[in-house]
Simulated assay, not measured.
Amino acid sequence: MKLSKRDYYDVLGLEKNATKDEIRKAYRKLAREYHPDVNKAEDAEDKFKEAKEAYEVLSNEQKRAQYDQFGHAGTQNQGFGGGASDFSGFGDIFDMFFGGGGRRDPNAPQQGADLQYTMTLNFEEAIFGKETEISIPKEETCDTCHGSGAKPGTSPKTCTHCNGTGQLNTEQNTPFGRVVNRRVCHYCQGKGKIITDKCNTCGGSGRVKKHTKIKVSIPAGIDEGQQIRVSGKGEPGVNGGPPGDLFVVIAIRPHEFFKREGDHIFLELPITFAQATLGDEIEVPTVHGKVMFKIPAGTQTGRTFRLRGKGAPNVRGYGQGDQHVQVRVVTPTKLTSRQKELLKEFNQIADNAPITEDEDSLFQRFKKAFKGE
């Protein structure tokens, strides 16, 4: 059983007196919501096609008038017999089903191109975030001609070759009758307008390259390679289309002492032989400031301690990471005579003293393995 088509106005959620701008906005909203590359729901592709079909009719004044008067029957071709049959919609049909294979209306609104900017932060800026301003080169609407491309006091003229449609029609006889083929008008490049007196500022393009300042908010906890999307700050749209977006890619300068893995921060902390042996309360640097920490007596080099909540904040707001401190016992290389005497005395006492370390410690196992050699 063949299902009846939905009313095109209902498809786009519009009243019958909707303006062109309202039709365009409604279609763009539905197209973004149901595009198969974005929405993987089973019925998304059908809804996307339905919205596109509705837009193609209602955005065209002639087709809309026929639809308002005759309904869906007014938008159908009348067969191949005798008269010329219009096959110009084939490009849009291919575009609908195969994602861009056919021709697009050169006068249809098009979204501007996205831009990418790499921002380098120091280690602490990435941890705590910041508000900043960047300057990027991008195309902007020409202030002299306000985007028309024509010299002030003049205006673009309707192309006489395509009568402002941006397309040239040619007819071809086929076994099915005469077929109308459409192609982009090469006189006006599909714009429907010809500029005879070009703007001296932009050379007729309607755009100029400028350095534009844009405020960017860097969230706390952002990491290397992550992106910030600044909506609407890309290149301007074409034919009234919306602008593209700006994507700020983050690079982070390495820190001399801190290293980061996700939300956790790692620090190698040098301590003396005496501190490792006797224990000590020492200052440990963190990105949040110095904290006091007790090193227990008998700490071995390589041992790791954890300082809870002293890492980086999660960029999505899921808590705070930790700081992991790995101690490294530093062997002194420059000793005074007195220090050497004391160490020699300590070594003699240690050799004659009873074993106090664990029997299976690395030091004891090493001594037993090589005793007498």
Rank of each mutant, 00 (worst) to 15 (best):
T160Y: 04
Q76C: 11
I295C: 11
G237L: 08
Y34S: 08
K47Y: 10
T132I: 01
T299P: 00
R183M: 10
T286M: 04
R328W: 01
T286V: 09
E45A: 14
I282F: 04
C159I: 08
R306V: 15
V291D: 10
G177S: 10
K310D: 03
Q78N: 11
I218A: 02
Q320A: 03
Q116C: 03
K310F: 13
G164H: 07
M119R: 02
G241W: 09
D10H: 09
I228H: 03
K191S: 15
T75K: 05
K2A: 11
G147V: 08
F346S: 13
L307F: 07
D105H: 03
G99S: 09
G317N: 11
E224S: 06
G177K: 04
I127E: 03
T201K: 14
T118S: 15
F98W: 10
E345W: 00
K49C: 08
H146V: 03
R183C: 00
V291T: 14
E15A: 13
N107L: 11
P236T: 06
T19A: 07
C199A: 04
K191Q: 13
D95T: 15
D114F: 04
T174Q: 10
F80D: 07
R338H: 08
G321H: 04
D263P: 01
K47I: 04
S135H: 05
S231Q: 07
M1V: 14
N77V: 06
N107Y: 00
Q339Y: 05
E50P: 03
R229D: 01
F257R: 10
D46H: 06
P175K: 13
G298D: 02
A297T: 02
K213R: 14
A220G: 12
E133L: 00
G262T: 07
E140T: 14
R103T: 09
Q172T: 13
Y8L: 15
K259L: 06
A274Y: 00
Q364P: 03
R365V: 10
R253I: 03
T336F: 03
G13N: 06
G71W: 10
N17V: 06
T141K: 05
K63N: 12
G82I: 09
E261R: 05
M119P: 00
A312P: 01
I355S: 12
S85V: 03
V325I: 14
F94W: 13
E61M: 02
G234L: 03
